[in-house]
Design a protein around this nucleic acid. Structure first.
Lengths: 341, 341
DNA sequence: AAGATTTTTGCAATCGTTTGCAAGTCACGC
DNA sequence: GCGTGACTTGCAAACGATTGCAAAAATCTT
């Protein structure tokens, strides 16, 4: 009878539970929050009741009162290539690791994709919503300036991307320029002399990779590296690569692809056009995604440590939430030599 | 001077803005919410001020008062294979499409990964948090019963997964059993007679795929399909596949892989062991991920329409939020014949 | 120009939780 | 018996936006 009643009574808020427990709402709040100021017996009783009724404090109300939500925003700006970038394996893997790290730290993750051209103040909007305690931006895309604008008015923001000398915002990312150097060095060591860069250099990370490769080409006295711009979505990229190859195949003997995904597509096209890799064409990718080990032949590539990146992003963000003023974190790339160069 | 002042004054809430505009907070709220009850001129003034000060109403407060948050929870239970399932390409791609669809409908997406064994009431916790208007569960994993329990007390939930006769919860998913049939039929049509299923049949979706394949094997009078269980994370799966192959390679001539990812790994192992595909071993995958087109030889696989799945999930969820009582949605799989079977 | 309508606005309660402050209880020692 | 602390609890004011209701202002009727 008593239990029937207990199960029947709807407990919608802390006040209902307080009535049931015969205490004040304040006490229930303190008990459920695990504060030390409440008597052990009372706490036990309250916890039992809460469990019995499946009651959980409303996070919205709690967030409102405490002025913090326990939610970290993760935003992916689809700037220079608005379609399908989110399905890019690299970003997705990073996102997975972020989810892990944030969960471990007791935060929830609010994901938002935005198309900056459609909506100029995507970042302020997210931050100003009051729903998130801090924000992680995945990829600078072509939004460097806007991010920079926001950075000095808003502390708890960390960005995945490229580090530029003297920038305001706190960034975590691989040393893309160094990665580009490693790639070019490898291509040249493998015997290539006329290089091409496959990818859209509008994206700042890609531009840095290209610049690094160009450093080496220049130092070695090779002709300038030509760029073969592509989109990132697999279908469009395929065509574009095919087109590039048929035009330049006789004038180049080494390709540095901005991404393993592009490299893999390129490899497929090369095979279709009967160009032997690595004999007639050397190829190096970037990222070291799982696919790099599965291509035929396996892809030589520059590795980014995604897990370390995610850890860095979360770590820095938490420090910033605690009020610390943090420096950027630049991770070292690592050359993975396999069979394409 | 005036503008200086305007820029200097901090506008933290609707009341501040009301003071500035010389109206009451209520009016500001109505103006910003785009209600028709407010005078056009007043609204213009208020909107201008809001823009000027970069003010946005606090979503927490709004959510609290309106009892809805504009956020949809997306939860990925890591049940039968707790590690790294989120980085599975299929789920990630689905997640990307979900983000698109939800954004288009004006909802935000809150992502949560949970490990059910560590925390039994993962689903109730998420729902009871008051942070989300509805929930999409990606993958039933081994949590079918728990989901089922929740389903009749809570309306706005839709699950990606397998449809079982007579189940409570609303599910969207491919007809896995039919997919399994298509795969087995193709393997057999290509000349295979002794089949194996590669994947962990604890996962209910995989079990259905296996069952479908078994249907066909039985109908054709072939010996029962053997199962080669694996984990989903690439590193462990690789070893396990290698081990399975070295044991069974002489007794089977066709493999149905639960996933394209597994199929691709399997293909790599087959090559390493010098087994010709499709001559000595036929192989069919599942999902039709981008990778399926890039393997050598290209992978014959059963396609799931991920975009349609995402659209279905969101559509059904919105209908349920509107109070409608919806049926499950079972999508047809499609066989993509390439070169491995 | 007074009365009847229709817009616009303001008032104040409400959503559910947290927390500073003050009051209450209890045990202890003098 | 009473003052002193150490624990526990209750009270009530926040947090910031929304909205039913009623008052005020503007517009229309006749």
């Amino acid at each position: 009878m008593d239990e029937d009643n207990a199960a029947r009574v709807m407990v919608r808020n802390i006040t209902d539970l307080a009535r049931l427990a015969g205490v004040s709402p304040g006490t229930v709040s303190r008990a459920l929050a695990g504060k030390s100021l409440v008597n052990a017996k009372t706490r036990a009783r309250i916890e039992a009741l809460a469990r019995e009724h499946g009651f959980r404090p409303n996070q919205m109300a709690s967030g409102l009162r405490r002025q913090k939500t326990g939610v970290i925003g993760v935003v992916i700006p689809l700037g220079h290539d608005s379609r399908q970038q989110i399905s890019d394996s690299f970003f997705m893997t990073l996102l997975g690791h972020l989810a892990d790290e944030l969960t471990r730290e007791g935060y929830d993750l609010m994901l938002r994709r935005v198309v900056p051209e459609n909506d100029a103040d995507w970042l302020d909007r997210f931050i100003g919503s009051g729903m998130i305690d801090g924000v992680i931006v995945i990829g600078q895309s072509d939004q460097f300036d806007r991010i920079e604008d926001v950075a000095d008015g808003y502390g708890p923001m960390v960005v995945w991307g490229n580090h530029t000398e003297g920038q305001q915002h706190c960034v975590v990312g691989t040393d893309n320029r160094l990665g580009g150097r490693l790639a070019a060095e490898r291509l040249i060591a493998a015997g290539a002399t006329r290089l091409a860069f496959l990818g859209d250099t509008t994206a700042i990370e890609f531009a840095a990779r290209f610049a690094g490769a160009q450093d080496i080409a220049a130092r070695m006295g090779l002709p300038p590296i030509i760029t073969l711009p592509t989109h990132l979505s697999p279908d469009r990229a395929s065509e574009e690569i095919a087109c590039h190859l048929s035009q330049h195949t006789s004038t180049i003997d080494g390709i540095f692809a901005a991404t393993d995904t592009l490299a893999a597509l390129c490899l497929t096209e090369l095979r279709d056009q009967g160009i032997a890799v690595p004999e007639a064409m050397k190829l190096v990718g970037f990222d070291d995604l799982p696919i790099a080990r599965q291509t035929v032949p396996p892809l030589t590539t520059v590795r980014q440590d995604i897990a370390a990146g995610a850890r860095g992003l979360v770590d820095l963000l938490l420090r910033r939430l605690a009020g610390e003023k943090t420096e950027s974190l630049v991770l070292p790339p690592e050359l993975m030599v396999r069979a394409t160069a």
